[in-house]
Amino acid sequence: GRAQVFATVVDTFLEKLVAAGSYQRFANCYRCFYRLQPEMTRSIYDQFIAQLQTSIKEEIQEVKNEGNLEALFNSLDKIVEEAKNQEEPAWRPSGIPEEDICSTVVPYLLKHKLYLQKVLKVKEEENRKVAESVLAGRDRIAELQQRIQARKHAWQ
């Protein structure tokens, strides 16, 4: 996993740095002091290495905590594992937000379209029923007109 690789790479870096800054090199650079106090030189060197290693490890831990890197590395490992059968390059942002937002909005538009189709159907059904009542009303009025005409003709 990424977390393991990260830890290994940092440890390797430290090892090699410490190896490069060997005691021989240190004593060679501080020759005058070494000649004066060889034991103290060793002690100072050991403290220098210890301090450097501690500071570097603390800094790495701080970076990991601040960035929540452990969790992110695990999550990314899972995502990469799930995509292992994908050979084609995956989608990437185009850099044009107006275009990229289309894909995000399309599902909502589809939902909205379905909703509108549904309410339109309900409205049409509602209107169909009202129209039936209207047609019945027209028939009734026509019938009343006929009855009035019949009464008028009877009087005539």
Binding site: E124, N127, R128, V130, A131, V134, L135
Partner: peptide
């Protein structure tokens, strides 16, 4: 007049 009950 473009609706489902346009005729009515």
């Amino acid at each position: 007049l473009q609706t489902s009950q346009a005729q009515v």
